[in-house]
Design a protein around this nucleic acid. Structure first.
Lengths: 338, 338
DNA sequence: ATAATCCATGTAACGGGTTACAAAGTTTTT
DNA sequence: AAAAACTTTGTAACCCGTTACATGGATTAT
């Protein structure tokens, strides 16, 4: 690997001059520039990013921590982040945290040691203190951490309300909620949205809220029991699509017809929704956009150290498919209390 | 950020001594060690990974290039790579190449400049020369590049043969193949496997092989036309699960019953297969294992500079589900010619 | 007792860039 | 014509660890 000194020697100039031409700053005579460029070509010189980072205290890399790339919500998010940061010359380090705060802190330490320029967090076990102590730009996506941290999210609560309202509109009389993990903001918010709509209904009881940890299998089990224990439940709002798919599976196996006997709606809008049978209704989040906006904001923060808007909340959109469509809307009183 | 010199001053020793204690090499008096550790604690010192990299010419990071993390095959692979490398203290840089050789070369250049210690490639637009010129350990996963490059793959061809044989066994009389993109090794191999079995059948013709680019929509379109144009086709072997799902959708929309009138089988074994209706038969690859083995091999290469086995070919497994099950096997002559 | 080892620690060069500063030549201003 | 400003280039310090080498004292071997 050729170094800048090799190039300097080859071109018969000093390293400073070479540095000036590769970074196009400072004065360099046109002739000299050509000589240097020829030497660079000849030696196939590529500047050493590590040496550069050491001096500049920045690395053109950004850290991305997500709970689990295997969860179909995150690949799109990660892809968006990669696309926009890569466009600006950044490279991304990916970390799966499995919702573990130790793992997250470990990654944060590594990021610090590697002079990562900024961090995108789709997790929320970290405290503001941990984040602030980094002294680096951080943006939270999908899961808000603290009002002090720039954030990009979807309207979890409002979306949940709309989902539940949709189930009511479609004639459901008793709606259960399979919620995501406790202490995960998105899950909490969606659960609140559900409660906003149903808490004062005569049929409502706490038992209608079940924990499903955002995973197919948990929801499958939860829904199986629910369907057996509570034959009156005719609508399920799942905290995410994966869990809705689990519920769908449970319904199919137990012979409960969807949507006739049981309407199901999810949340997120992952691709899988279109390949289930029946196709899954959902509240679609603009996943790619969330990631892209977070990445753009982060780069702004990195390059300008400030940003005009530091909180984005994207609307979600009701997408009605066959898992909740075509139920004869009955004439039921379901005045929304929101 | 405290530096090693700050720690040295605080502990009243030289930087060499501090370096010795953080790396536990060389002689250090027990007392001195304690003083240094106290200073480290006090200053919350973390060694600068960039400075270390510059000197050691290694960065404890590995580069991973995949076509597209959004394709459900890759998250599991990436997860496996992250899990095993992270365990050994490595961190991963992720790049999506979109099958573009320019993007791949770009990433390779960046990896070189960042002193990445090794690279895992799930792509195959690169040449051996490009790879060799890196002078770094590289392992190919899923798609072999050249016999000179350590490789971890599944038995694409044999798996394809088994898939097609399964369709024959289940009574299919005319089997089409929706293949993956040309020049992608896995797609080529699977296509060969298909041809191995069918090329001498009286019903075989070139038209039965259609290109679907490994994507749902392409396959959906291809299958729609196929179903209309060739009502005699009663079996489809799709080059991957995504395309099988596309075909499933086409069949459903055109009222072709699966599996009674049309059996469908995919390849890969992604999670989605279990959530489609009917559930999708497939040849399952040990995806996580592929990634884990590749990662382990890479680390071996990085740390020992050699490896005992440099080619792994994992068997794939036929998983029969409802998209091909329960067809009355007719008494048809389908002597395998392999 | 003396040489050979071992233990403990420090000094300084090194890795490969970047940039402040200096020096000297050119051009513009007044 | 002298001063000011601009252009061009080089020298060397700096970023922050790591490690070769040197030094000196304590042990052990012979």
């Amino acid at each position: 690997m050729a170094t800048i000194r090799d190039v300097a020697k080859e071109a018969g100039v000093s390293v400073a001059t070479v540095s000036r031409v590769i970074n196009s700053n400072g004065y360099v005579n046109e002739e000299t520039k050509k000589k240097v460029e020829k030497a660079i070509q000849l030696l196939n010189y590529k500047p050493n990013a590590v040496a550069r980072s050491l001096f500049k205290k920045q690395s053109m890399t950004i850290g991305l921590i997500i709970p689990d790339i295997t969860n179909p919500f995150f690949p799109q998010l990660a892809r968006a982040v990669e696309d926009v940061t890569n466009e600006k010359g950044y490279t991304i380090i990916l970390g799966n945290s499995d919702e573990s705060s130790e793992k997250e802190q470990e990654y944060l330490d590594i990021f610090e040691q590697k002079y990562v320029d900024g961090i995108i967090l789709a997790t929320n076990t970290l405290t503001v203190e941990q984040i602030a102590s980094l002294g680096k730009p951080v943006v939270a996506v999908d899961r808000p951490i603290d009002s002090g941290v720039p954030t990009v999210v979807a309207e979890h609560r409002r979306g949940a309300q709309a989902a539940v309202r949709h189930l009511l509109d479609t004639g459901c009389q008793t709606i259960a909620h399979i919620r995501g993990p406790e202490h995960v903001v998105s899950a909490d918010e969606r659960c609140k949205g559900y409660l906003d709509i149903v808490k004062d209904k005569p049929w409502f009881s706490d038992q209608l809220v079940i924990n499903g940890h955002y995973a197919i299998n948990d929801a499958y089990k939860a829904a199986s029991e629910l369907i057996k224990d509570r034959p009156d439940v005719d609508g399920i709002f799942a905290g995410n699509d994966l869990m809705a798919i689990g519920a769908l599976k449970a319904a199919r196996e137990l012979g409960k017809k969807v949507p006739e006997e049981l309407a199901i709606i999810g949340f997120d809008g992952i691709d899988m929704c279109e390949t289930t049978f029946p196709e899954l209704s959902t509240m679609v989040q603009p996943i790619y956009e969330l990631g892209a906006t977070a990445a753009n904001m982060l780069i702004e923060l990195i390059e300008n150290r400030r940003v005009n808007q530091q909180y984005y909340e994207y609307p979600v959109q009701l997408k009605v498919r066959n898992s909740s469509r075509g139920r004869p809307p009955k004439d039921v009183n379901h005045a929304d209390n929101i």
